[in-house]
Design a protein around this nucleic acid. Structure first.
Length: 457
RNA sequence: GUGGAUGUAGCUCAGCAGGUUAGAGCAUCAGAUUGUGGUUCUGAGGGUCGUGGGUUCGAGUCCCAUCUUCCACCCCA
């Protein structure tokens, strides 16, 4: 058989031990903070029924869902006409019924409805698992990546929104990443659309508002015209697009402009309340009302949140919002949820770029015992057992290889201590302990050796 | 899905306007050094030049297709 070139699918990655260590650091940080806020873990399968997934993320989202081909002789079951028709849109439903999950929010909504009698509302859960998107890979964009989701369902209170802002602040402060949190409210966007008389063009309007900073007023207006808005509506939208100033000022102007729109005013009121609640426990990071923030996931109905790293050019590293009726689709109406999702892989990339991972991170073993031969090895093994009883990771080099090789092994694996024991140590009942960083070496009995290593940072 | 760039050793890259046997640094392995790593010195292994076609006496080099990676758009973590 011909030798095949090793490789993995586009947009997926392997992880070396050091990379896992970095990712674990992120997972442990978010997990710790989620738990500090009373969230409980759940897991859901990698694959879901397509009926669960489709139609929840908009047209674009449906296209990006990985579909799983049915097992068995699926081809024979397809209707002849469809098989011959070569129409992908009609053929795929007949040959696929499962897909890889696209995010953790929709499977969670499904989960909540399915186990509604076994969970207690408000239900606070977190979930750290990979998701898959058939996107074209780019910097910070992968086809397989981890999301760390936290959500509350069954509570309308805006205290939840404020808590998530708090969580974001705590996570990124703990990781050492400077961030800015941008918030907006879908109701405000809906109010704007209503105000200019094109409620049904909400998506087009938000897309245009979103591009304001990038392409400017002229081009935005041109695009709006193309998308079917009237000149009159565009003129009415202008003061919104040109809105500048502090959050308070923006809200002031908006509440005047949107005074005839009930939803619009509701949105403004919600933002004000969230800001008010958060003022009791001020954030360390920047927080800003960004009217251009739209977010594509079309299940959001209230607050929308997005986080960007200040010192690195990268897409958003965390995002989320409130969805009022996601569980309704699965048969549980009137249950509102809010949540956010941390993009672990992008956070990893940001930390890597800013060199934020701690120095000793890659050291898995703390101690290596050098193997000089059978007698010496047997002398060291009980010491290793004792170290492990003290919770210290340690290992014996498996073969009596050359000293240089064993030392190199310790060095490459960032093992901070090496234990050496030959004839002279054995005859005295001691061990030589070498500190690999300083190069210092001393002969000690087992107890003091354990003490030194235990107290090593 | 649209547009652009890229691909030579495990990694980073040389390779003149097509012309002998495709190079370097780093990494790996071995030795210098039989109880002391990170520095040094010596040597070795490792390449279907992304893949498949084409042009040519001759292609790593030119042309086409395809794939990968990267960048922008779209969208998003």
């Amino acid at each position: 058989m011909a030798i095949q070139k090793p490789g993995i699918p586009k947009g997926t990655r392997d992880f070396l031990p050091l990379e896992i260590a970095g990712r674990e650091l992120i997972f442990n940080t978010v997990r710790r903070i989620f738990q500090l806020h009373g969230f409980k873990p759940i897991e859901t399968p990698a694959m879901e029924n397509l009926s669960t997934l489709l139609g929840k993320y908009g047209e674009e989202g449906d296209r990006l869902i990985f579909r799983i081909l049915n097992s068995g002789d699926f081809a024979s079951k397809v209707e002849e006409e469809i098989w011959q028709g070569r129409d992908t849109g009609r053929l795929t439903p007949q040959i696929t019924e499962k897909g890889l999950r696209y995010d953790l929010t929709v499977p969670f909504a499904r989960f909540v409805v399915q186990y509604q009698n076994e969970i207690t509302f408000p239900f606070k859960r977190y979930q750290i698992q990979p998701v898959w998107r058939a996107d074209r890979p780019q910097k910070g964009r992968y086809r397989e990546f981890f999301q760390c989701d936290v959500d509350v369902v069954g509570s309308d209170s805006l205290v939840n929104e404020a808590e998530f802002l708090q969580i974001i602040d705590e996570v990124f402060a703990s990781l050492g990443i400077k961030v800015i949190i941008k918030v907006n409210n879908r109701k405000i966007l809906a109010g704007i659309a209503q105000y200019i008389g094109f409620e049904e063009k909400l998506t087009d309007i938000t897309v245009a508002i979103d591009k304001m900073e990038k392409i400017g007023l002229e081009k935005v207006n041109g695009e709006l015209l193309e998308r079917g808005l009237s000149l009159e509506a565009i003129e009415k939208l202008k003061p919104v697009l040109l809105l500048r100033g502090s959050d308070k000022e923006k809200l002031g102007v908006l509440s005047e402009l949107l005074k005839s729109s009930e939803v619009g005013l509701k949105g403004i009121e919600e933002i004000r309340e969230v800001f008010d609640i958060i003022s009791n426990t001020p954030l360390g990071c920047a927080l800003e009302l960004d009217l251009t923030l739209a977010r594509g996931l079309n299940y959001y109905t209230g607050a929308i949140i997005e986080v960007k790293a200040c010192e690195v050019s990268m897409g958003s590293i965390c995002g989320g919002g409130r969805y009022d009726d996601l569980t309704g689709i699965f048969g549980l109406p009137g249950t509102s949820g809010v949540g956010i999702s941390f993009g672990a892989d992008r956070i990893y990339d940001v930390m890597k770029e800013l060199d934020l991972f701690p120095e000793g991170m890659g050291s898995f073993s703390k101690v290596l015992a050098v193997n000089f031969g059978e007698r010496e090895r047997n002398y060291c093994l009980p010491l290793l057992q004792k170290l492990r009883l003290h919770g210290i990771s340690c290992e014996m080099y498996p073969e009596p290889a050359k000293m240089k090789k064993q030392m190199q092994y310790a060095d490459k694996n960032r093992i901070p201590f090496v234990v050496l024991a030959g004839d002279s140590e054995i005859s005295q009942g001691l061990y030589s302990l070498k500190n690999m960083k300083s190069g210092e070496q001393q002969q000690l009995p087992a107890e003091s050796l354990i003490k030194i290593i235990t107290h090593h940072p």
